[in-house]
């Protein structure tokens, strides 16, 4: 199917909004799953949007833009991937194969936007010297444009040239590549999981990683069930770590004979 002009406009607006959203209210934020859902609604195929978004989401689970680091822009990837999957009718794996390189290339534009705002910073410095409060405010707000345009313009261009180019690419795609892409799509989530485990103090909490795995792989507990199990263990952990401090005080006060401590061990 061909993409309609209003779909191009809506997806471009989504691209502009999603980056502003990420640095302000954080509703769709930098989450490909939610962007994929919205893009799927616009393209009239929610399921495709969800699956594309979910696959990309798993690749960036623990990746954040902390301290100004750029991350692969799989939000833009989710928009382009969803749109092209619906246009080409080639399915999810094709969409992922397209979204990943798009997301990686977009990192350059993120860097450019963050760099461009330095220009407004120096204009703000100048307005401060002139005691021009309104001028200061104006120049801070101008920062919206490098952010928004860095996402909206590429999406607009890619959707505009998309129709014909994509059909050609699809025809030229060899079978071995589409089988390969499909397998790659299946294992790519390991990247997000590994990055996340590197970020978290995994070695300290390794037993809980095993419990979570055991519950899902052997007991077949669904995700929400595992989250509840984790919540229960987290509450126990929180209460016990508090008790330890208190029981230290009690130890000092009642120093007569043996008693049971917070972790249930008997000591004297």
């Amino acid at each position: 199917m061909a993409i309609a002009w209003w779909q191009i406009i809506l997806l471009t607006a989504l691209a502009f909004w999603m980056i502003i959203d990420q640095i302000t209210v954080g509703i769709l934020c930098n989450y490909p799953l939610l962007i994929g859902l919205v893009a799927g609604i616009v393209m009239g195929d929610i399921k495709t949007g969800l699956v594309v978004g979910a696959t990309l989401q798993l690749m960036v689970l623990g990746v954040g833009t902390y301290g100004g680091a750029s991350m692969p822009d799989f939000m833009t990837g989710a928009i382009i991937g969803t749109a092209y999957a619906v246009i080409s009718g080639k399915g999810i794996d094709f969409a992922i194969g397209l979204a990943v390189p798009v997301g990686l290339l977009m990192v350059q534009l993120d860097v450019l936007a963050r760099f461009t705002n330095t220009f407004f910073l120096h204009r703000v410095d100048q307005r401060i010297k002139d005691n021009d409060i309104n001028g200061v405010a104006r120049n801070v707000v101008y920062g919206v444009f490098p952010w928004g345009i860095s996402r909206a313009l590429p999406v607009f261009l890619m959707l505009l040239v998309g129709n014909n180019v994509i059909q050609q690419v699809v025809k030229a795609l060899p079978t071995w590549l589409s089988t390969g892409l499909s397998a790659a799509g299946g294992i790519l989530p390991v990247v997000g999981i590994a990055i996340l485990l590197r970020f978290l103090p995994t070695k300290r909490f390794i037993s809980y990683l095993i419990i979570g795995f055991f519950a899902a792989a052997y007991l077949k507990v669904p995700m929400l069930g595992v989250a509840l199990l984790g919540l229960a263990m987290a509450i126990i952990f929180y209460k016990q770590s508090g008790n330890n401090n208190q029981s230290d005080d009690e130890d000092n006060q009642s120093n007569t004979g043996g008693h049971e401590n917070a972790s249930g061990e008997y000591e004297d």
Partner: peptide
């Protein structure tokens, strides 16, 4: 610190369950 630790514990548990559920190989 305790709240952060408890939250990490919950996160790690969920990640453990994620591995068999979402990686298809």
């Amino acid at each position: 610190n305790r709240i952060t630790d408890a939250a990490i514990l919950l996160g790690v548990t969920v990640v453990g369950a994620l591995i068999p559920n979402v990686v298809t190989a």
